[in-house]
Amino acid sequence: MSEATKKRVAVLISGRGSNMASLIEAAKEPGYPAEIVVVGSNRPDAAGLEAAKEAGLQTFAIDHKEFGKDRAAFDSALSAELKKHDVELVVLAGFMRLLTPGFTEEWEGRLINIHPALLPSFPGLNTHARALETGVKLHGATAHFVTSEMDVGPIIMQGAVPVLDDDSEQTLAARVLEVEHQIYPEALALVAAERTEINGMRVTVVGSDDLDDDLIAPTV
């Protein structure tokens, strides 16, 4: 696949960017339909920014603290920066900011996130602790389109892991993170290849299988 036909992607992070790293690795494959053109953060000291630079990627930081409580102003500055890089798709990878409806509507259908739970169960924070507390037998991760309401966007792909009797929050989180690293590159590939259609809250996969099977795999 030529660089000209690949979707231009921005990855937004707030910390070390472990999911970012899995996306960078996937994008090295010649047949991968997305090119990561920039990595951005709301925290200038985010460790993932240095990792992105080491991978040869452009980076930027817009410190949300400089905007006080004006979320709309921060989001406007963020959107303007993304447009400077001719970004077509925005990928949230541990980006710890609630985005305003103005931003999510502007990037509707082009903005995706990974959440460490099987949505619609356990939206929000502390998902692993809550999974253990409620006694569910399956837990996992969800790649989904982002809407103005937190963690309720149309689901692209999910991956599940069993909850073991001796699990701690840390051991469960580690297994879920492995699933995140597997399904997020696959979900981005589907979106970048324009193989997803959103019908209400359902996402259907369409088109021919002209991508490598290693890049587009069934749900875990």
Rank of each mutant, 00 (worst) to 15 (best):
M1K: 11
S2T: 09
E3M: 11
E3P: 07
R8W: 06
L12W: 11
S14V: 15
G15C: 10
S18H: 07
S22C: 12
K28Y: 04
E29A: 15
E29K: 11
G31D: 15
Y32N: 02
P33V: 09
P33F: 06
A34W: 10
E35M: 11
I36T: 08
I36G: 03
V37N: 02
G40P: 06
S41N: 09
S41C: 10
N42H: 15
P44G: 09
P44D: 14
D45H: 12
A47M: 04
E50Y: 02
K53I: 05
K53H: 09
K53F: 06
A55T: 05
A55I: 03
G56T: 03
Q58Y: 07
T59L: 13
F60Q: 04
A61M: 10
H64L: 09
K65G: 12
D70G: 05
R71A: 15
A73K: 12
S76E: 15
E81I: 06
K84S: 08
K84H: 04
H85C: 08
D86I: 05
V90N: 04
L92I: 11
A93F: 07
G94M: 04
G94L: 04
M96C: 07
M96K: 03
R97F: 02
L98Q: 13
L98F: 13
L99T: 04
L99W: 05
P101C: 02
P101M: 02
G102N: 12
E106K: 01
W107M: 03
E108M: 05
G109R: 10
R110E: 12
I112F: 00
N113P: 01
A117M: 13
L119V: 10
L119A: 11
P120Q: 10
P120V: 10
P120F: 07
S121L: 06
P123E: 07
G124P: 11
G124A: 05
H128G: 02
H128L: 00
H128I: 06
A129K: 14
R130W: 06
H139R: 08
H139L: 06
A141S: 15
A141T: 01
T142N: 15
A143G: 07
H144R: 04
F145T: 01
V146M: 00
S148F: 00
S148T: 05
M150A: 14
M150W: 01
D151G: 00
D151H: 00
D151V: 15
D151K: 01
D151Q: 12
V152H: 12
P154G: 03
P154H: 00
P154T: 01
Q158A: 13
G159V: 02
G159S: 08
V161C: 00
V163A: 15
V163I: 08
L164A: 10
D165F: 06
D167Q: 10
D167V: 02
Q170P: 01
T171C: 11
L172Y: 07
A173I: 04
A173R: 00
A174G: 06
V176T: 15
V179D: 03
V179Y: 07
V179K: 03
E180H: 03
E180N: 07
E180A: 08
Q182S: 11
Y184Q: 15
Y184T: 04
A187D: 08
L188S: 08
A189G: 08
A189N: 08
V191M: 15
V191D: 09
R195P: 00
E197P: 03
I198E: 01
G200P: 08
M201A: 14
M201R: 14
G207W: 08
G207T: 06
S208G: 05
D214N: 14
L215K: 09
I216M: 08
A217F: 11
A217Q: 14
P218H: 14
V220A: 08
V220E: 09
